[in-house]
Every structure is written in C-alpha cells, then in structure tokens.
C-alpha cells in the first residue's frame, strides 16, 4: 500500500499534517484564556498610551506553524504625529 501511495500521492497526508499542527495548538490552549485575544488587547493598550489610532485600522494576523507561530500586528498610524515621523514621509 505504501508503494502504491508513493506513486499516487493523495491529499490524505496533507490532511494529516494540517490536523496534527492544528490540534497540537488547540490542546494547549484548551480551558485557558484566548492567547491571541489577550495579546491583542495588551498590545493595543500599550500603543494607545502613546498615540491615538482608529481601532478598526488595526490588522492582526496569526500563523500557527509546527515549531513556531507568528503574530503580526499592523497598525495604521495617521500622519502628523510628530516631527520625526512627519519628516520621514
């Protein structure tokens, strides 16, 4: 059967790997507060102490990988927030 699979690689190995990565994450966060939600709130709180921005101009992306995950926070900061920043434009 494995030889057969070698020649006709189906989509099952992809399904298997996706599930393994997903469930490894879901099992660690089960019963705990939502990590992504907590990070988002805290990061936004820190930034809003220094500058004001539109909450809906914030994009947060998370990519959960097998060994590392990335959290990407993209905040649109309006111009004219400081001489240095404006000069750079």
């Amino acid at each position: 059967m494995s030889l057969f699979n070698f020649f006709r690689r189906g989509s099952a190995p992809v399904a298997r790997e996706r599930l393994q990565i997903l469930l490894a994450h879901e099992r660690t966060v089960r019963g705990q507060p939502d990590l992504l939600g907590v990070l988002r709130e805290e990061i936004l709180a820190v930034i809003s102490r220094h500058i004001s921005f539109e909450p809906d101009k914030v994009q947060i992306k998370m990519d959960r990988g097998k060994s590392v995950s990335t959290l990407e926070v993209d905040i649109e900061i309006p111009n004219g927030l400081g001489a240095g920043f404006a000069a750079a434009q």
Binding site: M1, A12, Q20
Partner: peptide, 16 residues
Amino acid sequence: RAARGEMLSIDDVLEI
C-alpha cells in the same frame, strides 16, 4: 479511497 491516499487512513485518525 484510503488506499489511494485520498482519505485519512485508520492509522492517521488513531494516531491523531
């Protein structure tokens, strides 16, 4: 379908 690699095998499901 499992033999053709189109469906998760029993071993896959059991292992997961």
